[in-house]
Design a protein around this nucleic acid. Structure first.
Lengths: 119, 119
DNA sequence: AAAATATGTTACTATACAGTAATATATAAG
DNA sequence: CTTATATATTACTGTATAGTAACATATTTT
């Protein structure tokens, strides 16, 4: 089945854009955000461009969204990154065992800065 | 220092191309290979194109090379992937602890298929 | 109802770049 | 020495796409 390979290809291509990665970073840091609030962090870009990026991220299931009135809140979907990208990285991992402990600690530190689902 | 962010950007961009990722896969599976042998796996592409990809991968230190007579053997440099991409993935990891064991086992299975440095 | 706010959609443009083709260089073979 | 092999380099072209601008839709406010 080539579906997983295709998704991985699209995932890498999508993450190759700095704006999209920054959007994911912002969603991870601040929790769910609207397009307008996200666009505030990109003064050199236009809102509709950010909206287009979110459409792409939504299509690849890198973000989820829930509409609340006339606002639409986007939240990160780390599940997709985990399931596709982590196995790919592990494939090339040589010194996995050596650094497993340090890695685990780093992940736990990050988990402490996690946010809730709705603002 | 923005150097790390820049390198990450270039890394993601480089990995966004399917041909380059396949080259890394081939080097991981078969061990060090020459341009010509790599190009054999891409019947629809021309050798000079593969050479250009290798130049890019070399620039980003995703591969190393050593010249042996008129042949030049490329080998994968997993170190770069580990140091840059793995922390990025870990940043978005939610269920790290839950799956740590399975992940470790997968990495060990991959390690069994490892090759030596020179053919 | 009308104005304002929040977001989505789409045609267009400019740019980056993957792939090609032609040329160059260096080593090995005959 | 001459020919063949292995690789690198570079100008060129076609294509994908990031960003923009203008317009459309839906919901809230006054």
């Amino acid at each position: 089945m080539s579906t997983d390979a295709d998704r991985l290809q699209e995932l890498f291509r999508a993450l190759g854009d700095a704006t999209r990665r920054t959007i994911l970073d912002l969603l991870a840091q601040h929790g769910p955000m609207t397009v307008t609030r996200l666009a505030d962090h990109f003064p050199h870009l236009v809102r509709s461009g950010i909206s287009k990026h979110l459409m792409e991220l939504r299509r690849l299931q890198l973000v989820h969204d829930n509409k609340r009135g006339r606002e639409r809140y986007y939240r990160i979907n780390a599940e997709t990154i985990s399931q596709l990208l982590r196995p790919w990285v592990a494939k090339y991992e040589k010194y996995w065992d050596d650094r497993l402990h340090n890695l685990k600690q780093a992940a736990e530190e990050q988990a402490n800065t996690k946010k809730e689902d709705r603002p």
